[in-house]
Amino acid sequence: MLEILALALLAAVLSGNLCGAVGFYVQRLKITTLSFSVAHAALAGASLGLILNFDPVYSAIVFAISSALILGVIFTKMQYGRELVSMAIFSASSAIALFAIYMSNVRVLATASIAVVLWGSLLAVTVQKLIILVLVLILFVLYILAYRMHIDSMLYDVKLAEAEGLNVQAHMLAMLFFAGVIISLSFRLTGGFLVFALLYNPVAAALQLTRKAYMQLFLSSTLGAVSALTGLVVSYALDWPVGATIAIVSSTILLLAYLFKTATEMARKRKLRNV
């Protein structure tokens, strides 16, 4: 049991880190809706994997990458209406996921495997999945470092970057690809519907706390890891569902960040009034 817990803790830190980081980029590049669709496609993939007896992580990755590719291509071909296609993928994926879950009930699958898809499970982490997580982390960090200037230019102004000859589409595609893979891998802990708590809450909190882009990235990925880790420990101690606990922790962190910001703003204004 201890060994499983150690694996889960490591996976929580890695998933939290990765989700927080990719969430930061997705938010700054304004492709949140697209990543939302990719996440739901991953959920659909995982659910289908469940009834077809595949490892849900792998079917999730396949679905996530395919939807990322479709959205990426649409991103190049269509100047407007990306959001619409994105919403179509989102609702279709959710439908597939719910159907699959419904059908899996009929087939009386072990509840543990449904739990993985729906609300996450401590038991779902294996050494193999952990190794994949580490590999993805290395790849992602390499990508970010290798294309630092290109990505910075896009974070600053996507349209200007494109006008200057940057391959904006390829980088958007790469980001969606990473988002898809990272979401699929983080499922194990949070469950499909709550993976967003690790994806968007940390970056939202980071945006409250600092204005510097690199600090935002650092904070977002740190807060992601802290949320996942704390959520895991609390859920283990209190025997709560792990995904929901992580979501509650990350939402609490967001709330605290917001309160902190409001308080410092008020203090600053008071100081200004006094001089």
């Binding site: 470092l145 290798a146 294309y147 630092r148 200037m149 290109h150 910075d152 230019s153 600053y156 970057a161 200057e164 000859g165 940057l166 204005r211 510097k212 882009a213």
Partner: peptide, 24 residues
């Protein structure tokens, strides 16, 4: 007002399309 990139960095970023990986 919250955009934090410095002026120098923003001008530097104009060279991004000419750069290959890991190049500054």
């Amino acid at each position: 007002p919250f955009e934090a990139y410095t002026v120098r960095r923003i001008i530097q970023l104009g060279f991004a399309p000419y750069k290959s990986i890991f190049e500054s």
